[in-house]
């Protein structure tokens, strides 16, 4: 009885450890080695288009609406204290420090991460990856590496766009609609936002989130059971695991950056 329980725990532990090991080996094989820029750059640009440009619309729209909602909700509280002049710092700091990187990562996991997992999982199921190996093309270098770099490059850029659009959305609601003074909106923001403390820490956060999300997405796809059910499960797992990992790491990073 006890031995069965122990065996179950041991089995799960070994499974998750070997999962980490496979994920590490995949990344190791994809990224290590002499970079081949002549062949790598066109692949990277293609993936930047698929991962970055095609995610632009959802990022723009959600950034605009999140900025607008922040301004609307912040205003109702701040106006009670006669502090509606602090609407600018409220919107910009919450976007730059938290919402920009986190919401971008969540949307990115849903929009690009799931697509990557499904794509690679299907490549595996239809034995395209094995076919490449047969032709002496390393699928890790050819398939995984460009997608990885494209994700790591695209997501911080998407987060920056998200922040900028959100702050403009806050301006739209706060200044144009609710009548906060435009001068105090921007000047209070400029007085309270620091380039290194707030903007660049947000960028660092989103680079970390990009690494997490893209790594999980690629690994789940590469490791998927090559059946239709396996691919659907891998896709779900990508979104769930990546979202949870992003939220967990967000707490750690926030505690490290702003907790002290």
């Amino acid at each position: 009885m006890i031995a069965n329980r122990l065996q179950k725990i041991g089995h799960q532990t070994l499974n998750s450890v070997s999962g980490f090991g496979r994920a590490g080996l995949m990344l190791f094989g994809a990224l290590l080695g002499k970079p081949d820029f002549r062949r790598g750059i066109p692949l990277l640009i293609k993936q930047l288009y698929v991962i970055g440009v095609l995610s632009l619309m959802i990022i723009l729209v959600s950034g605009l609406f999140i900025g607008m909602v922040l301004a609307l909700q912040g205003y109702t509280v701040l106006v009670k204290f006669g502090a509606e002049g602090m609407l600018g710092p409220l919107v910009s700091l919450s976007l730059l420090r938290e919402l920009g990187p986190v919401v971008t990562a969540l949307l990115f996991a849903g929009r690009a991460g799931s697509a990557l997992t499904a794509e690679i999982g299907l490549m595996k199921a239809t034995e395209q990856l094995s076919g490449m190996e047969m032709m002496a093309v390393d699928p890790l270098r050819r398939i995984i590496a460009p997608r990885f770099w494209a994700g790591v490059i695209a997501m911080p850029l998407l987060a920056l766009i998200f922040n900028a659009v959100g702050i403009l959305g806050g301006h739209l609601v706060g200044v144009e609609w609710l009548g906060v003074d435009a001068g105090s909106y921007w000047s209070a923001m400029q007085a309270n936002v620091d380039l290194y403390q707030d903007v660049l820490n947000g960028v660092i956060k989103s680079i970390v989130f990009a690494l997490i999300v893209i790594w999980i997405a690629l690994h789940k796809g590469f490791d998927a059971v090559p059946t239709s059910e396996g691919i659907s499960r891998a896709t779900t797992q990508t979104v769930v695991t990546a979202s949870l990992a992003v939220l967990g790491f967000d707490f750690v990073l926030t505690a490290l950056m702003f907790g002290g």
Binding site: V53, L56, L160, I161, N163, A164, I167, V193, L195, V199
Partner: peptide, 17 residues
Amino acid sequence: FIVLACAAFLMLALKVA
């Protein structure tokens, strides 16, 4: 896309911060 992201960064650095 890259130009848009650079513009966003410049706006955040110059206008916001």
